[in-house]
Protein backbone atom coordinates (compact mmCIF):
# COMPACT_ATOMS: atom_id res chain seq x y z
CA UNK A 1 0.00 0.00 0.00
CA UNK A 2 1.27 3.51 -0.79
CA UNK A 3 1.41 6.35 1.70
CA UNK A 4 -1.95 7.99 2.25
CA UNK A 5 -2.37 11.31 0.51
CA UNK A 6 -4.06 14.08 2.45
CA UNK A 7 -6.43 16.15 0.32
CA UNK A 8 -4.59 19.42 0.89
CA UNK A 9 -1.14 18.06 1.56
CA UNK A 10 1.25 20.78 2.56
CA UNK A 11 -0.48 23.86 1.17
CA UNK A 12 0.30 27.00 3.16
CA UNK A 13 -0.99 30.56 2.95
CA UNK A 14 1.01 33.14 4.83
CA UNK A 15 -1.04 36.17 5.82
CA UNK A 16 -1.89 37.86 9.12
CA UNK A 17 -2.94 34.35 9.99
CA UNK A 18 -1.09 31.37 8.54
CA UNK A 19 -3.40 28.81 6.95
CA UNK A 20 -1.68 25.43 6.91
CA UNK A 21 -2.89 22.23 5.33
CA UNK A 22 -2.11 19.23 7.49
CA UNK A 23 -1.19 15.66 6.70
CA UNK A 24 -3.54 12.79 7.43
CA UNK A 25 -4.80 12.28 10.98
CA UNK A 26 -6.42 9.19 12.40
CA UNK A 27 -10.08 9.88 13.13
CA UNK A 28 -12.64 7.43 14.39
CA UNK A 29 -16.30 8.22 14.79
CA UNK A 30 -17.72 6.38 17.76
CA UNK A 31 -21.44 6.29 18.30
CA UNK A 32 -22.84 4.77 21.42
CA UNK A 33 -23.91 5.47 24.96
CA UNK A 34 -21.53 8.22 26.03
CA UNK A 35 -22.45 7.69 29.66
CA UNK A 36 -21.16 4.12 29.54
CA UNK A 37 -18.01 3.77 31.63
CA UNK A 38 -16.79 1.04 29.30
CA UNK A 39 -17.05 3.33 26.28
CA UNK A 40 -15.46 6.24 28.11
CA UNK A 41 -12.62 4.09 29.33
CA UNK A 42 -11.65 2.79 25.91
CA UNK A 43 -11.87 6.25 24.35
CA UNK A 44 -9.80 7.95 27.03
CA UNK A 45 -7.35 5.09 26.94
CA UNK A 46 -6.84 5.48 23.20
CA UNK A 47 -6.61 9.27 23.21
CA UNK A 48 -4.81 9.73 26.48
CA UNK A 49 -7.07 12.59 27.53
CA UNK A 50 -10.13 13.04 29.73
CA UNK A 51 -13.54 12.38 28.23
CA UNK A 52 -14.94 15.74 27.01
CA UNK A 53 -18.20 17.23 28.18
CA UNK A 54 -20.81 18.48 25.72
CA UNK A 55 -19.48 21.15 23.36
CA UNK A 56 -15.87 20.45 24.29
CA UNK A 57 -12.78 18.77 22.95
CA UNK A 58 -9.71 17.58 24.81
CA UNK A 59 -6.82 17.42 22.41
CA UNK A 60 -3.10 17.08 23.06
CA UNK A 61 -0.75 16.81 20.11
CA UNK A 62 -2.16 14.44 17.52
CA UNK A 63 -4.48 12.76 19.99
CA UNK A 64 -7.76 13.85 21.40
CA UNK A 65 -11.46 13.37 21.97
CA UNK A 66 -14.11 15.68 20.50
CA UNK A 67 -17.72 15.69 21.66
CA UNK A 68 -19.76 15.54 18.44
CA UNK A 69 -23.31 14.91 19.69
CA UNK A 70 -25.03 13.27 22.65
CA UNK A 71 -24.24 9.86 21.18
CA UNK A 72 -21.10 10.52 19.19
CA UNK A 73 -17.48 11.19 20.01
CA UNK A 74 -14.57 11.61 17.63
CA UNK A 75 -11.29 9.96 18.56
CA UNK A 76 -8.11 11.52 17.17
CA UNK A 77 -4.96 9.43 16.97
CA UNK A 78 -1.87 9.47 14.75
CA UNK A 79 -2.91 8.21 11.31
CA UNK A 80 -0.88 5.02 11.49
CA UNK A 81 -2.50 4.04 14.79
CA UNK A 82 -6.04 4.05 13.39
CA UNK A 83 -6.34 0.36 12.59
CA UNK A 84 -5.01 -0.64 15.97
CA UNK A 85 -7.35 1.79 17.69
CA UNK A 86 -10.31 0.35 15.82
CA UNK A 87 -9.32 -3.13 16.92
CA UNK A 88 -9.06 -1.97 20.54
CA UNK A 89 -12.53 -0.44 20.29
CA UNK A 90 -14.01 -3.59 18.82
CA UNK A 91 -12.53 -5.71 21.57
CA UNK A 92 -13.61 -3.40 24.34
CA UNK A 93 -17.14 -2.78 23.12
CA UNK A 94 -18.03 -6.17 21.70
CA UNK A 95 -21.51 -7.17 22.73
CA UNK A 96 -22.68 -3.57 23.31
CA UNK A 97 -24.68 -1.47 20.87
CA UNK A 98 -22.16 0.92 19.33
CA UNK A 99 -20.60 1.86 16.03
CA UNK A 100 -17.00 2.70 15.29
CA UNK A 101 -16.18 3.98 11.82
CA UNK A 102 -12.82 4.98 10.46
CA UNK A 103 -13.24 8.44 8.94
CA UNK A 104 -9.55 9.39 8.75
CA UNK A 105 -9.59 9.56 4.97
CA UNK A 106 -12.97 11.29 4.83
CA UNK A 107 -11.69 14.43 6.51
CA UNK A 108 -9.20 17.20 5.99
CA UNK A 109 -7.42 19.10 8.73
CA UNK A 110 -6.36 22.73 8.46
CA UNK A 111 -4.43 24.76 11.01
CA UNK A 112 -4.89 28.51 11.60
CA UNK A 113 -1.83 29.94 13.27
CA UNK A 114 -1.83 33.42 14.76
CA UNK A 115 -3.89 35.52 17.15
CA UNK A 116 -6.16 36.58 14.27
CA UNK A 117 -7.55 33.09 13.76
CA UNK A 118 -10.70 34.16 15.57
CA UNK A 119 -11.34 36.85 12.98
CA UNK A 120 -10.61 34.60 10.02
CA UNK A 121 -13.24 32.17 11.29
CA UNK A 122 -15.70 34.91 12.27
CA UNK A 123 -15.68 36.05 8.65
CA UNK A 124 -17.08 32.66 7.64
CA UNK A 125 -18.99 31.11 10.55
CA UNK A 126 -22.09 32.39 12.38
CA UNK A 127 -20.39 31.72 15.69
CA UNK A 128 -19.58 34.00 18.61
CA UNK A 129 -15.78 33.88 18.59
CA UNK A 130 -15.28 36.55 21.24
CA UNK A 131 -12.61 35.35 23.70
CA UNK A 132 -15.23 35.46 26.46
CA UNK A 133 -17.41 33.08 24.47
CA UNK A 134 -14.99 30.64 22.84
CA UNK A 135 -11.61 29.42 24.00
CA UNK A 136 -9.31 26.42 24.22
CA UNK A 137 -11.21 23.31 25.31
CA UNK A 138 -14.36 24.22 23.44
CA UNK A 139 -15.44 22.50 20.23
CA UNK A 140 -17.86 23.83 17.65
CA UNK A 141 -19.51 22.13 14.70
CA UNK A 142 -20.89 24.76 12.37
CA UNK A 143 -20.97 26.19 8.89
CA UNK A 144 -17.88 27.66 7.24
CA UNK A 145 -19.05 29.61 4.22
CA UNK A 146 -21.21 27.04 2.47
CA UNK A 147 -19.83 23.83 3.99
CA UNK A 148 -20.01 21.95 7.28
CA UNK A 149 -16.91 22.17 9.44
CA UNK A 150 -15.78 21.93 13.04
CA UNK A 151 -13.03 23.65 14.95
CA UNK A 152 -11.33 23.85 18.30
CA UNK A 153 -8.36 25.74 19.71
CA UNK A 154 -5.11 23.90 20.23
CA UNK A 155 -3.95 26.92 22.23
CA UNK A 156 -4.90 30.59 22.50
CA UNK A 157 -3.40 31.34 19.06
CA UNK A 158 -4.03 28.15 17.09
CA UNK A 159 -7.24 26.77 15.66
CA UNK A 160 -7.61 23.28 14.22
CA UNK A 161 -10.35 23.11 11.58
CA UNK A 162 -11.77 19.91 10.13
CA UNK A 163 -14.03 19.49 7.13
CA UNK A 164 -14.93 16.81 4.62
CA UNK A 165 -12.22 15.66 2.24
CA UNK A 166 -14.08 16.53 -0.96
CA UNK A 167 -14.32 20.21 -0.01
CA UNK A 168 -10.82 20.52 1.41
CA UNK A 169 -9.69 22.79 -1.42
CA UNK A 170 -12.74 25.02 -0.98
CA UNK A 171 -12.18 25.24 2.77
CA UNK A 172 -8.50 25.98 2.36
CA UNK A 173 -9.12 28.62 -0.30
CA UNK A 174 -11.93 30.18 1.72
CA UNK A 175 -9.80 30.45 4.86
CA UNK A 176 -6.87 31.73 2.80
CA UNK A 177 -9.01 34.39 1.12
CA UNK A 178 -10.26 35.55 4.50
CA UNK A 179 -6.75 35.58 5.93
CA UNK A 180 -5.43 37.56 2.96
CA UNK A 181 -8.10 40.25 3.42
CA UNK A 182 -6.41 41.10 6.69
CA UNK A 183 -7.55 41.76 10.24
CA UNK A 184 -10.87 43.30 11.19
CA UNK A 185 -9.59 44.67 14.45
CA UNK A 186 -12.65 43.60 16.34
CA UNK A 187 -12.02 40.32 18.18
CA UNK A 188 -8.29 40.85 18.34
CA UNK A 189 -6.94 44.27 19.31
Amino acid sequence: MSDAISPIGDRVTEAFVTVRGMGPRGMITVRGDLSSSKLKAVCTGLAGVDFPKAGHANCVGEKGLCWMSPDEVLILVPYDQTAAALKTLEQALAGTHYMAANVSDARALILLEGAGGREVLAKLAPVDLHPDSFGPGQFRRTRLGQIAAAFWMRDSETFEVICFRSVADYAFDLLSASAKEGPVGYLVP
Binding site: I5, P7, K123, R165, V167, Y170, L174, S178
Partner: peptide, 16 residues
Protein backbone atom coordinates in the same frame (compact mmCIF):
# COMPACT_ATOMS: atom_id res chain seq x y z
CA UNK B 1 -21.68 38.12 -2.06
CA UNK B 2 -18.57 38.70 0.08
CA UNK B 3 -15.83 36.25 -0.81
CA UNK B 4 -18.33 33.97 -2.59
CA UNK B 5 -17.30 34.80 -6.13
CA UNK B 6 -15.02 33.30 -8.75
CA UNK B 7 -13.59 30.00 -7.51
CA UNK B 8 -15.28 30.46 -4.15
CA UNK B 9 -18.75 31.09 -5.58
CA UNK B 10 -19.83 27.62 -4.56
CA UNK B 11 -18.01 24.68 -3.02
CA UNK B 12 -16.81 22.13 -5.56
CA UNK B 13 -16.62 18.58 -4.21
CA UNK B 14 -13.67 16.69 -5.63
CA UNK B 15 -12.90 12.98 -5.54
CA UNK B 16 -9.38 11.81 -4.65
Amino acid sequence: AGVAKGDLFQPVRKTP
